[in-house]
Amino acid sequence: MPTLHEVQTSMTATLLYGGADAFALIVEEPERLDIYRNTVESVLSGALRITFPIVDALVGAAFLDAAGLAFARTYPPALGCLNDWGQDFPAFLESFEPAASLAYLPDVARLEWAIATAANAQDVPVLLPENATLPLRSHPSFSLISVQWPVVEIRQAVLEDDFTGLSLTAEPRWLVVSRLGEDILIRALSSEAAHFTQSLIDNRNQVDQMDQDRVEVLAQHLLSGCFQENPA
């Protein structure tokens, strides 16, 4: 008699990876497993569709289903909260051969993961400017991402279904994503501001290095909910 763990390993091999391992375990014909396999595939790709709606719109349902299944087989969700799943999807897309001609796609996914992170972050109190003291701790909704493609403009074009004037030029770009109340804020940073921001997050910044430009960057971060309240 197979152990429970053996059954679950065989079922996983069949339902997620397409193997025949579970066929011998069941009373009914193997096709009956397709009911579950269809649900597994549709739930997992559906979760990615919710987290990466712009990628979905750019590539279409069939492509996302295929990419989603390949991703799930490589980086399956570990736990039963699918809002937490997808962090590795941008890097996966970089090596996903069918997406090779869409060089901007991984960067679009990076922006969408940052947006999802902001939307799903815990309701931790935001550090108010008047209470700001070092060290600063990033808010759970905060992301600083580096991209090459104009992903904000691509996202806007998809949302408005208007690609007029969209120029796909690759160059270094930095974006900060955060949540203030229920609003998701996306802001572009200069390279200098991005490196300064990273030093703040890494707690490497010295107060005496705060020139006027940096003070303004920090002020914008504070006003955008990028940091969490310090413990009392």
Partner: peptide, 25 residues
């Protein structure tokens, strides 16, 4: 039901073998 095995969450409510071992688990 079960949904997680070997570190993978499958997103469905999958049937259990109805055995004494599964009952203990």
């Amino acid at each position: 039901s079960w949904s997680i095995a070997d570190g993978a969450y499958l997103g469905d409510l999958l049937p259990l073998p109805m055995t004494e071992e599964a009952l203990d688990v």
